[in-house]
């Protein structure tokens, strides 16, 4: 219950300010631009290629938007001094973190819902399945869940938005490119790094319309780990 209260409060903060809408519109603008230049406008392509390119573009933007939406969530509370209100509220630290994550996910879901007309355009001349689109969006939501969790964990460590955003981006890029390290390391780290590839290993399957339990488990576990870390940071702040 407390989780939903925190989520509602944060979601309202996103929707009642211009910044949230600007981020949503900017993401839609860039997605549309990429959809036209790399997808539909890039000469004759097979329907599934256009759809995969759309999910690829959207995936990149989801990660950027995830960091933008979350970098202020906990950092701003500290900056404005409102974290004291949260700490003295009946909500536990875990409820605060999950509530803020749910609010960010609400904004991500809204943004993704507004992109739905793009894959729908493929139906005009092409052949793709609704299930393929559903799986692609499941991948985008999974990616959004993990990215926003990373963003919230980064935001929990700082007092201002900028370093939180930078740290979130660094963690994300490390996870994105970490698999390159697998070429120069040995087992078991080699396998771990190769498996942890945030995009190459786990998101491309969603793009292609293939749903794997292992990919869902991966994004769920990344989300869990970073939300847990954020919770422990908040708890640590109490006893410090």
């Amino acid at each position: 219950m407390h989780t939903l209260l925190v989520a509602r409060r944060d979601l309202a903060a996103y929707l009642h300010g211009y910044a949230g809408w600007v981020i949503v519109a900017a993401v839609l603008f860039v997605t549309g631009l990429l959809f036209q230049t790399r997808g539909l406008g890039a000469g004759p392509q097979l329907s599934h290629e256009v759809l995969e390119t759309f999910f690829e573009n959207c995936g990149g933007l989801v990660m950027i938007a995830g960091i933008l939406f979350t970098m202020r969530s906990l950092a701003e509370e500290r900056q404005l001094g409102t974290d004291v209100l949260l700490q003295t509220s009946p909500a536990t630290d875990a409820q605060v973190v999950v509530g803020k994550w749910l609010a960010a996910m609400g904004m991500m879901a809204l943004t993704l819902a507004l992109t739905l007309y793009m894959p729908a355009l493929i139906f005009v001349n092409g052949k793709v399945s609704l299930a393929h689109i559903a799986v692609g969006y499941t991948g985008l939501l999974s990616l959004a869940a993990a990215t926003t969790a990373i963003g919230i964990a980064a935001s929990s460590l700082f007092r201002t938005q900028l370093p939180a955003g930078i740290l979130g981006a660094v963690v994300l890029v490390t996870l994105l490119l970490g698999w390159l390290l697998s070429d120069v390391t040995d087992a078991p780290f080699k396998d771990v790094l190769a498996y942890a590839a945030f995009w190459d290993k786990h998101f491309t399957t969603f793009m292609e319309g293939r749903l794997h339990v292992r990919d869902l488990a991966y994004y769920a576990s990344v989300t869990f780990a970073f939300l847990l870390a954020a919770t422990k940071v908040l708890e640590g702040r109490r006893w410090q």
């Binding site: 299930a131 559903a134 319309g209 339990v213 869902l216 488990a217 576990s221």
Partner: peptide, 20 residues
């Protein structure tokens, strides 16, 4: 906990190809 969960998911992976 993340490691065994992912290990089990990879070992017992199920997949559905829903492309057109």
């Amino acid at each position: 906990l993340v490691f065994p969960v992912n290990y089990l998911a990879a070992q017992h992976d199920m997949d559905w190809d829903v492309s057109y």
